[in-house]
Amino acid sequence: MERTAIRRRLTWQVATVADVRRETETARTIVLDVPDWPGHLAGQHLDVRLTADDGYRASRSYSIASAWDDSHGSTIELTVEQVPDGEVSPYLVEVLKVGDPLEIRGPVGGWFVWKPEQEGPVQLIGGGSGVVPMRAMLRAHAVAGTTPARLLYSVRRPESVIYVSDLKELAASDDVDVRLVYTREAPAGEPRVGRIDAELIEQYAFKPEDGATTYVCGPTPFVETVADLLVAAGHDPARVRTERFGPTGGPR
């Protein structure tokens, strides 16, 4: 059957932790060496499986934070935000160390992805750790993008920003427009404190007629609000792709 050929079976692979980088008080980027990684699209995720010494297992899905480029060898990056009372994320953020093995399976997901050959501008709107798959998209865009890209990134306070150095680099380039939105506390010189609203979308996002594909990722209330604002502003719902983040998508 033709379909079987296209739908590759995913198997567990043993990766090795090559490096870890603290991003914020609660988030860490883990660099994994994966000898047989088949490559991935920017925005895809993978499953991580932990096994205790008595055989007990727990698995969760995490977005891949790096773009795939064959020339980069065999490493990929995950950025994990520690979930209070979580089972897997505290281990990944606090316990796992360089040299440890980590079982992974992926990549997964063919919808919340950006491909360089895609037409039209790219609008990214991330809340908190929802920026993780967007970092992969921006990295892929930096290598192969030919259309303009914009990132609207909502964070609580300056210390909550992950990928600070990446974002500075991106903000300095001509191809990408980066705008941070602070919801609780802003740095000196930034007068606005508050959530993303209709005015901000109007001011900083591509217009409906620009034909952008918009990606929205974050906790559920963030995603619901932003997606509703986009639709209300005249954006075609079919061009708005969403992904909910968090332990269970966040409480309602």
Binding site: R57, A58, S59, E87, W111, F112, T220, E224, A227, D228, L230, V231, P237, A238, V240, R241, T242, E243, R244, P247, T248, G249, G250, P251, R252
Partner: peptide
């Protein structure tokens, strides 16, 4: 297998809510 219990009602969808 591989599931964990939640008492919330998480939301997952691929686009804006119609």
């Amino acid at each position: 297998p591989g599931q964990y219990l939640t008492h919330e009602f998480p939301v997952l969808s691929a686009g804006p809510t119609p």
